[in-house]
């Protein structure tokens, strides 16, 4: 009864002196505002991917976005749920999925990935806010495992890229895994050239992951708007950097492991690490909500990433790292929950 009366009062807004229940101060941030801001933050990344991979980038990303939005619309219509395509979350999923695909994929890979991402990972679990795993990453994992050959053909960036006339090559991390640092330096010249190319994004890789500078600009915008905090990205990147420094060093001739001789910058700048750390591992829904838990989450992501990069079968492990840590989010949240002041601890049985 009381609740009904409160609502009526709030609707009328005639009595400024009426005491109402909290929250009293409302921000202007809404879900759709945040989602569209993240989309905006991905704009520089998209521009760089068009610059390096030409019309093909528009084609792949556009297909992903279109398929994501359409499948969300169709599924919500079918289940007679409220259609929420205008909040930008499906758009964001499509954009992130597109940024995570290699430029030369045939048309059905973005379609399959989008349908899996939206319908299986997001809508079947209850829609936005109820997902266990990051939808875009599940979509990518699904297509990577389903079409392992097509998903690992990488192209050298050329702006006139249309798919057939481009040269294929391995990603920097792939070269590092197969041939070691020596071969990587042979291809790129010296270390400064390598860093420069990795930083600007002039290397083979997924559409949105190559250009570190564009990603950092986007991430800077999100930091400025305070939509993401430093906890996850910093702990993620720091763990990867430290582990790369300790375990990443190899003797060029013998291939034997040398401790504390690795090059953290190569590992930090290459692959999907920056994209993953700033845009995927900061997804509100699938990560721990408490700050302490977020740091644990980031460190865990870093550990698994480096484990896969250095010891696993895949050259890149950011995707699997984030997905695996997503499973642990509820567990982490439960572990780091703070005890209210003065609370009595549970009795030991």
């Amino acid at each position: 009864m009381i609740i009904v009366r409160e609502e009526k009062l709030v609707e009328k807004k005639e009595h400024p002196l009426i005491v109402s229940v909290s929250p009293h101060v409302r921000g202007e941030e809404t879900v759709s505002r945040i989602m569209w801001s993240v989309n905006l933050a991905l704009l520089p990344v998209f521009i760089m991917s068009v610059y390096y991979f030409g019309p093909r980038a528009v084609y792949v990303t556009g297909l992903c976005v279109l398929a994501c939005v359409l499948s969300e619309y169709a599924f919500q219509k079918w289940l007679r749920r409220k259609v929420t395509i205008s909040d930008g979350s499906a758009f964001l999923t499509g954009l992130l999925l597109g940024m995570n695909l290699p430029p030369g994929v045939p048309f059905y890979i973005p379609l399959v990935g989008s349908v899996v991402a939206i319908i299986i990972t997001k809508q079947l679990f209850g829609g936005l806010g109820y997902t266990i795993f990051n939808p875009a990453l599940i979509g990518r994992a699904f297509v990577l495992i389903s079409f392992p050959k097509l998903m690992t053909i990488w192209y050298k960036p050329t702006s006139a890229f249309v798919g057939l006339d481009a040269t294929t090559t391995a990603t920097p991390l792939g070269i590092l895994k197969e041939g070691g640092l020596g071969q990587l330096l042979e291809i790129f010249g010296d270390k400064m050239h390598l860093y420069e190319k990795l930083f600007l994004g002039n290397t083979a890789g997924s559409l949105g992951e190559t250009s570190a500078i564009a990603l950092l600009i986007g991430a800077g915008y999100l930091f400025y708007k305070r939509y993401i905090t430093w906890h996850i990205p910093l702990s993620f990147l720091a763990t990867v950097g430290v582990l790369a420094w300790i375990f990443g060093g190899k003797d060029i001739e013998t291939g034997k492991l040398i401790f504390f001789a690795g090059d953290p910058l190569i590992h930090l700048l290459s692959g999907g690490l920056i994209l993953g750390a700033f845009f995927m591992a900061t997804d509100y829904v699938t990560v721990p909500t408490l700050r302490k838990g977020q740091i644990i989450f980031g460190v865990g992501c870093g550990l698994i990433t480096m484990l896969i990069r250095l010891k696993g079968g895949f050259p890149e492990g950011v995707m699997f790292a984030i997905l695996l840590m997503n499973c642990f989010s509820p567990l982490i949240d439960r572990q780091v929950r703070t005890k209210p002041f003065g609370a009595v601890g549970e009795k030991k049985k």
Partner: peptide, 18 residues
């Protein structure tokens, strides 16, 4: 190109669940 994941264990869970 078939969906290779469906014959892997992960696809088994997916098929049974759906």
């Amino acid at each position: 190109n078939p969906l290779l994941i469906m014959v892997l264990p992960a696809g088994g869970f997916l098929a049974v669940g759906l």
